[in-house]
Design a protein around this nucleic acid. Sequence first.
DNA 1: TTACGCATTTTTTTT
DNA 2: AAATGCGTAA
Length: 772
Amino acid sequence: MIGSLNPQQQAAVTLPTGHALVLAGAGSGKTRVLTTRMAWLIQTSQVSPFGLLAVTFTNKSAREMLTRLSALLPINTRGMWVGTFHGLCNRLLRAHHRDAGLPQTFQILDSADQLSAIKRLLKAAGVDDDKYPPRDVQRFINGSKEQGLRPDNVDAYDAHRRGMVDLYRQYQAQCEREGVVDFAELLLRAYELLLRNAPIREHYQRRFQHILVDEFQDTNDLQYRWLKLLAGGGASLFAVGDDDQSIYAFRGANVGNMAAFEREFAQGNVIRLEQNYRSFGHILDSANALIAHNSARLGKNLWTEQGEGEPVRICEQGTDLLEAQWVVDEMRALISSGHPRRDIAVLYRSNAQSRVIEHTLFSSGIPYKVYGGQRFFERQEVKHALAYLRLIANPNDDTSWLRVVNFPARGIGARTLEQLGDLARGAGTSLYQAVDALQGKSGAKLQAFVELLSGLAEQARELPLPELIEHVVHHSGLRTFYMGEKEGADRLENLQELVNAAAVFVGEEGLMGEPALSQAARAEDPLLSGQALLLAGQGNAPDPETVGGPTLSPLDAFLSHASLEAGDNQAQAGEDAVQLMTVHAAKGLEFDAVFITGLEEGLFPHENSLTEQGGLEEERRLMYVAMTRARKRLYLTLAQSRMLHGQTRYALRSRFLSEIPDVHLKWLTPREQQRVPVDTPPWAGAYRRGDAYGRPSTGTMAPRTPRSLTTGVTVGDQHFRIGQGVQHAKFGDGTIIGLSGSGTDAQAQIQFRDVGTKTLALGVAKLAITAG
DNA sequence: TTACGCATTTTTTTT
DNA sequence: AAATGCGTAA
């Protein structure tokens, strides 16, 4: 089992009991080490499969871990505690819902649900949402929870902040009332449960002798504390991570946890995995050179035994359309030279970029698969169907209630709902509970809806899950509604897909560490079986009725599944297709050939990141992650102009390109090529594709005016272009680094020598053109 | 109550 | 460009 590992990997796998940190560079066999260690611990009888806890960040890696583990050992992984932080916390809370103060069938809000819950709250409270934008409130609440702070603990140092805290408090009350829990709440609740309930805490502390954490660099403060608490009874913590691949600071991840872990736990027990088995030399060295521009790294030097391979290819095109066309042409060449499509990936910084590439691929007839973006369980028709299902499980879920109470339209309008809302608020109940109090015509319509729900709930007791969903889709009127829609066919197909997903889910429920607790898991888990009674009489002992009772219903389990796993495994594995995804989504994956597109200032690195503390370094790590996905070939592409927010935008080359030494690079477009002169079409260069209007030869897009494809903007009698030197009466000398719009709407981003970067309206600002 | 048209805002990344 | 939000007409 460990024979084929290199010495460092072996050392990591066979570390004696105790805390350890494994610094695992990209492609160094991290997952392999993690799974082999689990297998080794079990095989040498140091721990039973049920004494292991393994935490990952994505469901995909949890599944992968279990798959690999069962390949190494002939054990049934059913019921093992391997999963995401959120999945495991959900499991914990379901098992001990009473101690956690939650209804057994609590529902999980995804980000969109949470946001609409917040909007609803702001409206009901009559809050000025200019002062408290829903998104800011959401960030505040999640940020607080990620630091383990309840409203009472947040430092409210000024009036605005007191307002935020107040909204946080109201939001929390609303969630309690509705029996719903957001992502951050799953973690915080579970943490508080362990913290406050000694019997439960001690039970799990005793049970989990070895805790293994993947992607440790992505943990937030609360997750770190959660781990510390769980390991507090003497368990060994085995953390694997790579500080250079920390790309989730925006959702609270704290790279500092790695250093903290080394200090507090590992104490010198650190193993570095620095041999890369994935990429050829040029690719690896390019990535190494890039990431060397970051400061405050733990330090690591990745190397490979493979040869230097091919240089990293760079291609610059005039527009995003040409960029996409070039990528597709190159891809076609790769495919015809024998590369399987599934081993080719196109990566981009933001989801919006996938459109052009998809379009080009589509007209070329190359099969492709987009990951992320609109996820399956986030599609409106699926969410509608799920809302009905959630109301069956818990009619007090106001978010779901409002989503479908009048969808399809059944004559329940805004005024009715306002009245109902007032009644509910007055009585401190959910909307569902307030229905009886509302009299009159609209009351009757609401009654009809309630009856619809209770009818569905009745069916829920009779029918297997897939048939129940079919029944719901039919009797809710969703099917009829979408049959009448012009775009409805796709949606109906997705609803059918939901039924299929449920059938698959019911078939393998519990198999892969799903939140549902299978009977097998129960039997192995003393706290969940009859032995839980041993803890009785200690005050907060688990409640035997719920703990020993029937397992979570398939419906409840499926709903958790839908919230926690937005359907990213919906990918049809069947067809051999090119893969499209964001750089974030690509973490942990690898491909023979990788195209990283949109390497432009403002896009990658993203402009929004530049104002954030440490933002640029995170972007650079993101680029590092992207580059290290490639095994054999890496392409970096950029476009001088691109459509963004309905406007043409011009940008400079990404600074990341100049951070890679030339020896590793091969420019496919002239490196020192002058920027295309003002008002000269960019296709005048060597890489012209498509017709004179820049559209792909086979495309069906409307002709675009050449004007939008120039690299400059004319306002009055002045020409502005990227790189142009300008002078402003107040801000002084500067250089244009970005342009957008045209005519009177034209704006320029200007980097001033003394006052930083400003965005100015060219029609308004008085600028003098200087050198450049 | 609903449907439609106009205006405004948005987009970075995700469990 | 696309999605959301708001006011008005039917």
